[in-house]
Design a protein around this nucleic acid. Structure first.
Lengths: 235, 235
DNA sequence: AGACACCCAACTGGATCCAATCTACATAAG
DNA sequence: CTTATGTAGATTGGATCCAGTTGGGTGTCT
């Protein structure tokens, strides 16, 4: 559920990250799946991964358990692990869940946002725009979530945030895919600026704007996926 | 995220459950944590668990990863795993999340419920009442979730259901604890009958009733926990 | 007596080894 | 020619073994 919360408490500076090999592996593999290096349905072979990272199969196996719990892979006994494939209805369902949960947490956050919070968000947004113009897909995916997250932190709703993060990991895969396929993210960029502006004035209308932002992103994505499917069966 | 969805598709009869040792271990350990056999903050020693189940430490370690992902334990490197402790605000947050998500999915489910679905729910409810009168805490916990789940299945919202299940696993711990401490579950029993009745007539007012049911459960639980704390520091 | 260094027991992390199972290909029978 | 069967290689599941870390206890020095 709420794994991958490294850096959960940046309250204390000077915090070293001491993670075990399985955790580090899970992080790396998750990133690679999100980036599309491992495609939907592709099998993940323990030995191959172990060889790549120059370790034994055991930490790989533990990492697989984490990824499976995060919903990124499914593994069948004695048959190995494959990258999860989601039907489009379930992808849309994920976006609808995000819309509901993120609007809820944003409601809590809105009244508690300080200038400090907002400045951090603005900073992330600038990095996001920069990454987008440089077409650095992986960075855009990561920073997109970072921006959303930064808006929700003031709510101080730890469980909700963990849940949302889990869903975002899954949608990230498709968002990054969409970035490769379309230019619909232009629209999202403008949305982000508008969201930040509304947050600055603590305008409650940002809630519904956020809902539209997420739902539209879902629809755009499904359109792109559908277009790819009919335009040719090429992978 | 959406782990533990065994039996997801009973479409084909004669389906044997073939789970690996780590999965079986995770199921068993989860149940023991939920039942309070392992208390909050209690350390789980790999070797001890392995000895209990007469297996090596390796499957135990993989099971731990699953439980950690489900939020039931936290493990620090070289220091082992302990059962998660949640502050009361986060417990309430979990109930609020349940209220939001379960009301949402119930909205989808309500119009799609057939007599068949409702009869199954009624059957489960009877078993639940039976277990409650026999004071079989573990069974009450499990069947309580089964009843809720049975109401949501018609919605055909797989991701939402998986998310809700994950949260319910966590709240189950405290619900079972509450069953030991108070008799507030009487109230919940009547709620369940009322919910089923409203579902039978496809009355949309069941949505808000469900919200109240869950939120009240959360408040009752927190009261019970608080009462225990002030009445004495006894474990 | 208190503080510091060192050592040892307990435990976790990771590697290697062996067993169980699946897949694919080859072979044989209908 | 198609279908069933058997066998070999590949791959996963689980056990055992070794190394590294942690925390507590003891002994010594101040």
């Amino acid at each position: 559920m709420n794994e991958m919360l490294e850096q959960k408490n940046p309250r204390s500076k000077y915090r070293l990250k001491r993670q075990s090999l399985p955790e580090a592996l899970a992080d790396s593999l998750r990133e690679r799946i999100l980036n599309g290096e491992f495609k939907e349905g592709e099998p993940l072979v323990q030995e191959a991964i172990a060889a790549e990272y120059e370790c034994s199969r055991m930490p790989v196996r533990e990492a697989f358990r984490q990824l499976e719990a995060a919903g990124l892979i499914v593994s069948k006994i004695h048959k190995g692990a494959v990258v999860t494939t989601l039907p489009s209805e379930q992808i849309m369902e994920l976006f609808e869940l995000r819309a509901m949960l993120e609007c809820d947490i944003l409601t809590y956050a809105l009244s508690r946002m300080t200038d400090h919070h907002l400045n951090i968000s603005e900073q992330i947004l600038e990095q996001l725009e920069d990454a987008y113009h440089k077409r650095d897909i992986a960075k855009v995916g990561a920073l997109n979530w970072e921006f959303h997250r930064s808006l929700y932190v003031p709510a101080d709703r730890i469980q909700t945030l963990a849940l949302i993060q889990g869903i975002n990991v899954q949608t990230d895969r498709y968002i990054r895919l969409q970035l490769l396929l379309t230019s619909a993210f232009e629209e999202a960029e403008q949305d982000h600026r508008q969201i930040l502006k509304l947050c600055r004035s603590h305008d409650p209308s940002v809630i519904e704007f956020m809902r539209g932002h997420i739902i539209r992103a879902g629809h755009n994505l499904l359109d792109a996926l559908h277009a790819r499917k009919v335009s040719g069966t090429v992978a």
